[in-house]
Amino acid sequence: MKAPSFAYAKPGTLPQVFDLLERHGDGAKILAGGQSLLASLNLRLSSPELLIDITGLPGLNGIRIADGKVRIGALTTHRQIEQSSEIAEHLPLLAQAVRHVAHVAIRNVGTIGGSFALADPAAEYPACAVALDATVVLAGSKGERRVKARDFFRSLYETALVPGEIVTAVEFDAIRPNFRSVFLELARRQGDYAIVGLAAHAKADGSRFSDVRLAFLGAGATPVLAGNAMASLEGKPCSADVVAAAKEALAEDLDPPKDLTTSSAAKLHLARVLTGRALAALSQ
């Protein structure tokens, strides 16, 4: 299948992007790495009038560490994140997660900004961002604004972006001492969409859980923060009973949609298995 015809623009500045977005409205789509957009064009699932290629914009690419924050520009590719020693040191959750994002050829082009803007509930970064309480930086003609990841992902492929805005960066708190991160997912083939995945983060000294964050992917219309399970763990000893209770509490947190081969019940079971494994790793 061939993509339907579209116009193409490659602006050099953000104001030019905003101008194009204003003029074309819903008819325009932002093209960054093209990881998902090009496939949807070539399947004729999407037929925009205009593609606005933002890869020529200055300042949106790269990883900056300052004041305990890690700022990742929207055009930073998965491969850059994968190969970054700074990410490995300061954001081990993302470093673990990125290896599950598709395959190297795709990681070479796909960007973090694209992953956030698309808001696929099966994607890895959104769950990490919710687990780490990251901030998404948006820009539009009226200026810049910051939205917490948990508020950014509204529904299936729906975000807090308003018409005319684009994602310019994502900011994370760098990992603090005594905290640990674990990213786990179950995909039938390496690089596939996960049946279910878990971004977990906690302070753990081997005896007690605190500040536990459990965010699931593939388990709802957005990344799902497992509030009941998290609450059940807070301040509790790292014991089998406590872990079992947290797994039990997941029933209140998750109502995973079935996929082509996996039932909702099986997904909940798998989410519990991942929870047990993540908590074991966090409490080691």
């Binding site: 039938r188 081969t261 996996t262 019940a265 099986a266 079971h269």
Partner: peptide
């Protein structure tokens, strides 16, 4: 033999 089918066989799904 999907994970679903194996879990069903094991009585876990």
């Amino acid at each position: 033999f999907t994970p679903q089918r194996i879990l069903e066989a094991l009585g876990k799904a």
